[in-house]
Each structure stands twice: as C-alpha cells, then as structure tokens.
C-alpha cells in the first residue's frame, strides 16, 4: 500500500493569470505532452489553440438529435393524422398538404431532441458525471473553481518525468507546484 501511495498521479502547477497560463499552455503543447490539461475558473478565450486542440464535434450529436426529432414528429403526425385515423377538422385536408399545420410540432420536437442530444453528447464527451477524481484531493487544484489558473500534467503521459517535468514547469513560469500522489 505504501508503495502505491507514493505513485505520482500528476503535477499540479498554478499560474498567476490567464495570459501566463495561455503562454504556458503553448509551451506544454510544444514540448509534446499529451495527457495534460489546464483548469480555469472560466473558459479562457482562445486557449484551445494554445493547447493544440481542434474544434469540438459536439455539434454532430446535436444534428443527429435534431434530425431524429424532426423525423419523429413527422412520422407521429403522418401516421396518426393521415394513416390511422384521418379526420377532416378545421376544413384541412387529411393528407400531407396540411403540412403547414404540422409544422409547429415538428419544430418543437426538433428543438427538444436537439437539446437532449446535446446534453447527452456533452456528458459523453467530457466523461461526466463522475463521483470523484484524484485531483480533488489537492487543495491547490481546488482553487480552480475560485481564482486559480491550474495546469495539470498527468503521470500517465509518456513524457512525464518526476524531476524534469518539475523543472520544465518552473521554467515556463509556474508559481506553486505540487506533486499529487494517488
């Protein structure tokens, strides 16, 4: 057990401001790290580029959701109003040329399904919810939700070296640095 406890999980480094973190991220990216992240109280504009991350493809999920919603509504209305029980109400024909009257429900279901698909997609993409995470054990890390600009390099990263990584972090201007053990 005691050996396990000394296994490093990650380096946690605090930076003084968003621009500093931004530059640090650029350095970490250029150094070729893979399993690292910056934790900030708010989304820092443009830091995706500094981290070398591309566009989020969450919109694909939403699109699929939207199309599903649209088709659901269309078939629901078509089957019930045209095929199962065609009734002439409000002097509107019982065929698809009544489509303007079907439009509001189609629209609403498209939106509803898009919203759910987006939320589910989000959870899948960011791998949440999860109850706990080793990083929460660090007081330094927990500053991220207040005013800390935190950079975390995980030990799982192939380039992670206990000494060299610390030096590297100091080099790129980290303030407090903590080695979190899992």
């Amino acid at each position: 057990m005691s050996e396990n406890r000394t296994t490093p999980f990650a380096y946690i480094a605090e930076f003084g401001s968003a621009p500093e973190l931004y530059h640090a991220a650029e350095h970490v990216r250029d150094a070729g790290f893979k399993r690292w992240d910056v934790h900030t109280p708010y989304p820092v504009h443009g830091i995706d580029k500094a981290m070398g991350l591309g566009k989020s493809w969450l919109s694909t999920c939403s699109l699929i959701g939207g199309v599903t919603g649209f088709l659901t509504a269309l078939s629901l209305e078509f089957f019930t109003q045209v095929m199962l029980y065609p009734t002439v109400v409000q002097n509107k024909p019982t065929n698809l040329s009544t489509i303007p009257a079907f439009f509001p429900v189609m629209f609403e279901l498209t939106i509803l399904f898009t919203a759910f698909a987006t939320l589910i997609g989000l959870c899948a993409f960011i791998m949440l919810p999860r109850w706990n995470h080793p990083l929460f054990n660090s007081a330094l890390f927990n500053k991220f939700s207040d005013d800390g600009f935190i950079l975390v390099i995980e030990s799982r990263d192939p380039k992670f070296r206990k000494e060299r990584t610390r030096e590297f972090l100091e080099e790129i201007g980290a303030g407090e640095i903590e080695l979190l053990e899992a």
Partner: peptide
C-alpha cells in the same frame, strides 16, 4: 457532476 474545469471539458 464532478466538474473539474479542465479546458478539455470547457
């Protein structure tokens, strides 16, 4: 939901 504020989440 266990939010960690990482940019990979943001």
């Amino acid at each position: 939901l266990g939010w960690r504020g990482g940019n990979r989440q943001w």
